[in-house]
Design a protein around this nucleic acid. Sequence first.
DNA 1: ATATATTAATACCTTTTTATCCTTTTTATA
DNA 2: TATAAAAAGGATAAAAAGGTATTAATATAT
Lengths: 145, 145
Amino acid sequence: MGVFSKTCEYALRAVFFIAHRTAEGGKVGIKEVADGIASPEYFLAKILQDLSRKGIIQSAKGPHGGFFIDDKSRKNSLSEVVKAVDGNGLFTGCGLGLEYCSEVNPCPLHNQFKDIRNQIYLMLKNTSIEQFNEDLSLGITALKK
Amino acid sequence: MGVFSKTCEYALRAVFFIAHRTAEGGKVGIKEVADGIASPEYFLAKILQDLSRKGIIQSAKGPHGGFFIDDKSRKNSLSEVVKAVDGNGLFTGCGLGLEYCSEVNPCPLHNQFKDIRNQIYLMLKNTSIEQFNEDLSLGITALKK
DNA sequence: ATATATTAATACCTTTTTATCCTTTTTATA
DNA sequence: TATAAAAAGGATAAAAAGGTATTAATATAT
Ligand code: FES
Ligand code: FES
């Protein structure tokens, strides 16, 4: 497994996709999102439902419904998305799984690991959801395959 | 979940513990290791069996038997341990879970993520198993709680 | 108002990971 | 040679993650 859980990977890709597709208003359906990011449809549905409850994205039922991201939410940083899905253990936890990460009782990898952990956090904190809309439009970056 | 799987966390802590305790020759039993790194004994047993089969650590059955790490193996880097347990997906995989990580079809996070991923690799590659023996002896670093 | 089609939400099932128990094999030594 | 100590291996179970089928909500046409 990678740095993020599968659930979190799908969540991040979906959030990018939805932000991109609803930048000019409008909504996008679950099937389209699932296809756009190559994820299992119903599993993604559950993830989006959760993100919706937590206010990371928005949704509307019924015909012409779908998922979207409002102006305020699209300014959110990726760290909010990761925190909503995986919690913030990735940002604060010990790399070797000690109960607490601390300077007073550090694990052998602590000094090196804390820097890396912080860089992961900064990367996510300093990146907004909407930030890649243009790259996606230009086909510079991809969300599947 | 953190950067490493639970299995991998236990493996790394155990490897540090065994290297430290068998630096002057001798062996250490599974119960002692499990206690020393605060891990479930029988689950750890499986992990150590696996590490032993893969040549990361060594073991001896019978009275006065136990686990140990020979001179050659203790020079191994942590990346070997992680690779043995979790594979090398952590070192090569896409942060957002795309099938392949590549420059030609990069995900939005690719440029930032590849640096971080490489730092994780370098940290592990440049750290040997035996490297923390002294710190552990001095109580500067810990493997439990 | 009501039926209908559309769509998200929920309840359910499967697989993987993590953890435990029990039996077998190996081996030092009494 | 018998005994006990220790890892190895098989079988099982609980928990978490991953994935699928069904249900509920709603806009719109009639
Ligand atoms: S104690 Fe392990 S990373 Fe801080
Ligand atoms: S393509 Fe995603 S990290 Fe390289």
